[in-house]
Amino acid sequence: MTDSSPSSLGAKVVVASSSDESHPPENIIDGNTQTFWMSTGLFPQEFIIRFPEPTSISAVTVDSHNVKQLRIEKNTSQNASQFEFVTEKDFEHTEGHLQSNTLSLDGSSAIHLRFIITTGYDYFVSVHRVTVQI
């Protein structure tokens, strides 16, 4: 099992519900926790990662701040639509350092992974890194 940044697998962020030009959604998948994507107000917030081909994923690790609940959906279609629920997790609040949570995906095959932040601990949340175990 290897930990990979989605961008090293050729994946892209194809949808993000917030955009601050200085903190673009590409920062989520570059494998670097120093760079991040920031939400710009209101919930839910979401982003969708597209893999170049159907990919079996055993787990994802999300480094973030102020996320209260994250839901992951997936599909195996070329279109970013008709998602099915995969898993959901409540994150612990952290002060002074990032949240790091691993969610098991049980090796399910996906082209699109949709990350929905349903609520946060503050008005704004940030996602610093998503890595996948394949």
């Binding site: 926790t33 920031m38 480094d63 952290t94 002074g96 350092h97 990032l98 790091s100 610093h128």
Partner: peptide, 14 residues
């Protein structure tokens, strides 16, 4: 927002 942004930039990895 600007305040929170600064905060986040000073966070250490989990």
């Amino acid at each position: 927002y600007q305040e929170r942004l600064e905060n986040i930039q000073n966070l250490s990895p989990g």
